[in-house]
Computed example of a mutant assay.
Amino acid sequence: MTADLMAVVLLLAVAAYACAGGTDYGAGFWDLLAGGAERGRRPRGLIDHAMAPVWEVNNVWLIFVFVIMWTGFPTLFQAVFSAMWLPLALAAGGLALRGAGFAFRKVVTRLAGRRLYGAVFAVASLVTPFFLGAAAGGIASGRVKLGTEASADAWSNPTSVMFGLLAVAATALLGAVFLAADARRFEAPDLVVYFRRRGLLSLAALVVLVVITLVITREDAPHVWHGLTHGAGLVLGVVAGAASLVTAWLLTRAPGGWVRASAVGAVACAVIAWGLAQRPYLLPTSMTVAEGAGAPTTLTWLAFVSLVAVVIVVPAVVFLYWLDTRGDLEELTETDLRQGGGPQEGDTAGTV
């Protein structure tokens, strides 16, 4: 019973990181595609101001995921990190480089340095979610088992590639939606239109990728495909689809808090649908929740610590998000947008 409870907590923590961290990755994705210095100055200025108050706290959810894995499900942790050490190491490297790029590009004075750190931040924002998604796809396809040695097939198979692309598209959607709402709050109508269009494009790409993924997983990950097309997995998938339609409708209007909620709901429901589709397995079809769980005493204490975190940490993080979305942490002026977060001349990270 305790093992099942902690498996649910683990899934919810993964969903929380997908939404919170995904929004940050999505902002970096649009930074990459913002264009040269003149064209991308205002979008990058908005991205810098929107991310600055909360970009570090989002990793709390990732740390929580790892703590639950290695403490509550050590066998799962061993299997995943043995078979997937390379994509996970690449994701970790991207996470570190992304943070360094975001921090240093705002303080260096030389143009070449700002270009370099801006490019590092933007590219790492694309690489990190892709490899995290690829690792999840390897698990979903059943290629990860206890004792599986690391190999390219474990994370470069069709399901892994599609999961990686889905992760990138989902983060792009979240980033565009949140930035469009921020642009409205900062009274920058041109950036509202800018990010609203990109949100709709991301949503369209996400829908296409979901359809392709379902086709591929039918042969490559049959257990997960069955779970996604039947029972609770299907229900959550339908809810995710409905939330996506609501998001599309709200993006055609004035984006605000509701479109953020619908986008987060769509991504969270999709992640939870994947978790429910794997039932009763942690690793389809080789490791059940009971087989991967740690000692009962450890699980009991882990449940207690998780409860303490829910009572103390989660409200504080939610309150921080609330302050940020209200604009109470930092104000943005037209002068800030004109100055931007990138170099004053030349290209930073892309030309799209």
Rank of each mutant, 00 (worst) to 15 (best):
A91M: 12
V215Q: 13
A183I: 13
P87D: 06
T2E: 09
F29N: 13
A13H: 02
W61Q: 00
T217S: 13
V211P: 04
V352Y: 15
D24E: 11
G256D: 08
G340C: 07
G28P: 02
F77A: 15
A152F: 14
G275Q: 06
G101F: 01
W61T: 09
A221G: 11
V224R: 03
L12A: 13
V57P: 08
L200F: 05
P158R: 11
L95M: 14
A170Y: 12
Y321P: 01
D24W: 00
F29Y: 14
T213K: 02
R185I: 11
V211I: 15
W301Y: 09
G72Y: 01
G21L: 01
L201P: 00
A122P: 12
A261G: 05
G93I: 06
F304R: 11
A112R: 12
M287P: 11
G137P: 06
S141C: 10
A124F: 05
L90G: 02
F304T: 12
D4N: 13
V259W: 12
S306I: 00
L90P: 01
A112G: 11
L234P: 00
C19Y: 00
I312L: 15
A169W: 07
D24T: 04
A34D: 00
V168Q: 09
R184S: 10
W30Y: 14
T148C: 05
M6F: 09
R279P: 03
D153W: 14
F66H: 10
V305M: 09
I63T: 07
S156D: 11
G256N: 08
V352C: 10
L203D: 02
L302K: 03
S306L: 03
L32V: 10
V239F: 04
R197C: 04
I139E: 15
A169M: 11
R105P: 01
M6D: 01
R114A: 12
A232K: 06
W249T: 13
T171N: 10
A13E: 04
T2H: 03
D324Y: 13
G350D: 05
L97R: 03
V14I: 15
M162H: 13
M84S: 07
S151W: 07
R98I: 12
L11H: 14
L32Y: 13
L146R: 13
